[in-house]
Amino acid sequence: MARGPIPDTLRQSVQHVVLLYDDPLVADRDKAPLPEFVERHRHPLSRHTIALLALSFSDSTHILSSMSHAHDHDNDLDPMAARVRALETILTQKGLVEPAAIDAIVDTYETKVGPRNGAKVVARAWCDPEYSDWLKQDATAAIASLGFAGRQGEHMQAVFNTPDTHNLVVCTLCSCYPWSVLGLPPVWYKAPAYRSRAVMDPRGVLEELGVHLPAETNIRVWDSTAELRYLVVPLRPKGTEGLSEEELAALVTRDSMIGTGLALESHQP
């Protein structure tokens, strides 16, 4: 372990993680978010590593003293967390929400739904022309048949990429997103930068994201609404004729179903 001056961002990270580990409000420490600056600077460190680093730094006494100091502190609720608790308290008293139901929804969206659902839909469409037709005509029913039904009563439309046309999905108003097949949207999908630029300059956005399309390929942008959400069916990569549906699904990335990426190339010989 190299010893020397600790970069400030890393020092902050270590202190934050140490405090995080000590916070009774954080029920599941492995799921708890890392501080934003750790994410932003992308220290290739797990929180476990950071905690170990805290102990191995030559001037770790400072960090360790802040660690034990934390035990003497009272709890602190940040304003947003307090507002959510307040709202939950009121709504629970009114019988409109149940804390257990809230936890179940969080758990579902964190662990059970996600882009793997959408990938199964795409792989099935690649393998089964009848399913593909169904998906084209009635995506809501075709997707529900695989067990992925939306909870907001929204309709789904599948938009198929072709060699001539590439589809890109955005929600310019808020960030409607096909949760049932893609899970929750990534941070950038909700950013005004993406929401406005995807419409004004889709080719530029795709280029920046590393998707280089031939100049003659049309780009069609689909603006989601609360009632209608889109799933992009990317082009099936070449050389994947021998792959099983499951193997194909592994090539379907979340971004390829938003249209900000392509399906992965097969690594099959």
Binding site: P33, Y109, E110
Partner: peptide, 8 residues
């Protein structure tokens, strides 16, 4: 890839 940055 994070969807939530804080539990609240």
């Amino acid at each position: 890839d994070r969807v939530f940055s804080e539990p609240w």
